[in-house]
């Protein structure tokens, strides 16, 4: 199960809406071993594409160095789908390389940049096997 604070969930959704129709991507870091996503880090989609995302290679190095220095790991790796449901694509599954991360998918298909309910789902992706998990949203101040 993914447990995530409402403010962080909302920030991920806001990022996805902002970048629509391109895919948005980023991570939520947390202390190693905690499984608690606490630090929202939106990343640039270097592919700037509605069907693909990739962290810029230098941003990626900087990110991992910073996480290492702070004793953090990418607890959540998120990206948006802008024309398909919030389910990992074949490419997502093939390229997933953090077996301990929660892969969050957001779909802006229905409302685009506008307000309205957004699909927000979380998965484990290990050795090509996708397992959806429950998402528990912790209210702010709770």
């Amino acid at each position: 199960m993914l447990t995530i604070r409402q403010a962080i969930r909302d920030a991920i959704i806001a990022h996805a809406r902002r970048d629509h129709p391109d895919e948005a991507c980023g991570v939520v870091a947390g202390a190693e071993g905690s499984d608690e996503p606490t630090r929202f880090i939106p990343m640039l989609n270097a592919a700037r594409s509605p069907t693909f995302f990739e962290f810029d290679s230098h941003d990626l190095l900087r990110l991992y160095r910073e996480l290492d220095d702070r004793g953090e790991v990418p607890v959540v790796i998120y990206h948006s789908h802008t024309a398909t449901p919030a389910y990992p694509s074949r490419t997502d599954i093939g390229l997933a390389s953090e077996p301990d991360a929660h892969y969050v998918l957001v779909s802006t298909t229905e409302y685009g940049t506008g307000e309205g309910p957004v699909e927000f789902r979380s998965y484990r992706i290990v050795d090509g096997v996708v397992t959806e998990e429950e998402v528990e949203v912790v209210p702010d101040g709770g």
Binding site: A47, F52, L61, S97
Partner: peptide
């Protein structure tokens, strides 16, 4: 030398 898999998908 640092090795990092791309964080990427579709």
């Amino acid at each position: 030398v640092v090795v990092l898999p791309a964080v990427a998908g579709g």
